[in-house]
Simulated assay, not measured.
Amino acid sequence: MSEYRHIVRKWVKPEDLNQHGALFGGRLLQWVDEEAAIIAVAQLGRIDVVTRHMSELNFVSRADRGDLLELDYRVTRFGRTSMTLSCHVENAVTGAAVLTLDEIVFVSVDEAGAPVAHGITESTSGTERLRGR
């Protein structure tokens, strides 16, 4: 499988902070899951995908207001109905790891929510699958 890598950057803003003045873990997970879903949709060429599983989350260090984070995704595997990504989040300025997540599994589903084969075995770098090309 050819390697696919996708990087997204996020600023930590005041509205993203918890009661301790650090990035709220739930906000980071929201960012991670939302972007991972966008990647899954582009890779599988269909919008009918759901998050099925996330492996153990490892919050390595805190992020503070004003930090610039890089969310680095990689496609690691395609199954018959699923695809798996990994995500590593780090501080873009210091390089310090913030979060590691080895597996985010998405499943392609039909109208009733049942798993359906997607037929994809290789990653793509664009959105051509969504456009039917």
Rank of each mutant, 00 (worst) to 15 (best):
Y4S: 13
H6Q: 04
I7W: 15
I7A: 00
R9C: 13
V12E: 08
N18P: 01
H20G: 08
L29H: 04
Q30A: 15
V32E: 09
D33V: 14
E35F: 01
A36G: 05
I39D: 09
A40T: 03
A42Y: 14
A42H: 15
Q43Y: 11
R46V: 15
V49I: 13
M54R: 12
S55W: 01
N58H: 14
S61V: 00
D64W: 02
D67C: 10
R77K: 08
R77N: 10
T81H: 07
T81F: 00
M83H: 01
L85S: 00
H88C: 10
H88D: 06
V89C: 06
V89S: 06
E90T: 14
N91V: 08
N91R: 07
A92V: 01
V93I: 14
A97C: 05
L99K: 02
T100H: 02
T100L: 11
F106Y: 11
S108D: 12
S108I: 07
V109I: 12
D110C: 04
A112L: 06
P115N: 00
V116H: 02
H118W: 05
I120N: 01
T121D: 12
T124R: 06
T124C: 09
G126E: 02
R129W: 04
G132C: 10
R133K: 10
R133G: 14
R133S: 14
